[in-house]
């Protein structure tokens, strides 16, 4: 076969392969949100993070603004230290509230940010001053049962 024909076919093949890779990245995958460009990281201490995992989304007003970078255990305070990376385009005030929420009743857990009113903005390496732990379903149920039980006891005593 002619060398030019071979070159042409190989060119088509390489272009198609590259297009498929791009297609996978853009159309099938979340290349857009994964490459958030520049980020800054902020750490928060939680008493209980439930089943939060690295790479879980960080949302504010329902919009993904960052991702959980890593989760460590602090052996001195016995708390979980969660570092999140937030897109540089979205600065948050110093007193931003970090909560661990669950998507739906049994869905994956994510961090929700509620902006405070501070003039100063969070910088790279800062800490969230206010955090709220994950709601653990078992705890809630046992609390509920306990309060029900004590309620009925109360009514008995009142009789």
């Amino acid at each position: 076969m002619e060398r030019t024909t071979i070159d042409l076919w190989v060119g088509i093949f390489a272009a198609a392969g590259a297009a498929a890779l791009f297609g996978l990245a853009l159309k099938v995958g979340n290349f857009n949100s994964a490459t958030m460009g520049e980020t800054y990281s902020v750490t928060g201490a939680f008493e209980n993070i439930g089943s939060l995992k690295p790479r879980a989304p960080v949302k504010s007003a329902g919009v993904v603004v960052g991702r959980v970078d890593n989760i460590r255990f602090d052996p001195e305070t016995y708390e979980a230290l969660v570092t999140v990376k937030v897109d540089k385009r979205y600065p948050f005030p110093k007193d931003t509230f970090a909560n661990i929420y669950t998507a739906g009743l049994l869905g994956e857990q994510y961090i929700g940010l509620e902006a405070g009113g501070d003039e100063k903005m969070l910088q790279n390496g800062d800490k969230f001053s206010k955090t709220q732990d994950a709601v653990v379903l078992e705890k809630m149920i046992s609390q509920f049962l306990y309060s029900k039980a004590s309620e009925s006891n109360d009514t008995k005593e009142a009789d």
Partner: peptide, 15 residues
């Protein structure tokens, strides 16, 4: 079909 796919397929981890 597309949006759920894009939400779950990670560029780094999967592709």
């Amino acid at each position: 079909f597309w949006s759920q796919m894009q939400a779950s397929v990670d560029f780094r981890e999967d592709i």
